[in-house]
Amino acid sequence: MIKLAISTSAGQFALFLGENNKILFDSSSIEEIQELDYLLLQGLKIINKKIEDISEIIIDIGPGGTSRVRTGIAFANSLAYSLNISVCSVTSMKLACLDAALKYKVPVIFSVKSIKNNAYIGFYNNTNLFNNIEYGKIIEIIPKWIENIEEFVVVGAHREEIINLDICKNKNVIDSKMMFGNAKILIEKSNFFTETHLKFPEFALPVTEETL
């Protein structure tokens, strides 16, 4: 059965179709139209599958560009409802942190800009456990997380700010140079995203400062 993964929190819409952790269709091959329904139908046509062949939808619920995130979630939720299948919701933080953790094999800190100098900040210390997500100021949140850690990698919008924190001076802080995670891992590492399978009347909702 086919899995559909949608990530809209980064710059462009990313839509993947895959089977057994292998990507069969990647929407980056179609650049002219950025509409999810069009991308999905084109993808199904290319891999010679039907809409009914989709058995699960994995959706990136942000944080990220608010309108784009809601666009992806609204589409994923209603498609899942219409097909009577479940939606697996994954935060953009988990996606980015898992991507970085698999590459660097050290704990990860990920941040997304928000209003009034606040940030969504995530901390991930191994591939099975997503430790923490908080909303607030970098300077107030990060020091308590990294007190007892000597090495970690930073991902997201505040990499430089985190590297320059006083508490990081004697630590080995790796700059991943990544703003977001690669959404391909929603398919390729889908076995890591098993905790939030939602079927109507449950459905995915975007990450906001209220939902953390």
């Binding site: 139908l41 809409i51 609204a74 209603s78 219409s82």
Partner: peptide, 20 residues
């Protein structure tokens, strides 16, 4: 309102795609 419209439009797209 653009944010409100986008939720409705993309929900409708998902349903129309699923129900063909």
């Amino acid at each position: 309102l653009i944010g409100s419209l986008l939720v409705g439009i993309n929900t409708a797209k998902g349903l129309a795609t699923g129900w063909n």
